[in-house]
């Protein structure tokens, strides 16, 4: 399973523009961490997508793409309307990859 995170927008949006995505490949992780990632992805996918935060300004937007066994899923979320499971997955990804500035 490969998980790709792209973040955009925010007060410092200009710094983030065009930055490469953050990628975590479960194949390169110890089994325990790979299992942890799979559990977080499953939890995030099980939640109802949060409504779009149309009135938010400077909130960052995140797109997490999960590729697994030939299928893929895209999970999108705004900082202004983020489910706990999505936040857990985001935090885990940030902690295990070297992010670009202003992640």
């Amino acid at each position: 399973m490969k998980v790709t995170l792209t973040s955009s927008g925010g007060f410092a949006a200009a710094v983030r523009l065009g930055r490469p995505p953050l990628v975590v490949d479960a194949a390169g992780l110890p089994p325990a961490e790979a299992g942890e990632l799979a559990g977080l992805v499953t939890a995030a996918r099980a939640e109802e997508p949060a409504p779009r935060a149309e009135r938010a300004r400077d909130a960052m937007s995140h797109t997490i793409t999960v590729e697994d066994g030939g299928s893929s899923a895209v999970l999108s979320c705004s900082d202004a309307a983020m489910s706990p499971a999505y936040a857990d997955l985001l935090r885990w990804l940030h902690a295990r990859a070297t992010p670009p500035p202003g992640r």
Binding site: A56, A59, A80
Partner: peptide, 16 residues
């Protein structure tokens, strides 16, 4: 807000 969160925003009602 969050852990090491690098941003500030207006969510339509409050400032974060």
């Amino acid at each position: 807000r969050g852990v090491a969160y690098q941003n500030a925003f207006w969510d339509g009602r409050e400032m974060v």
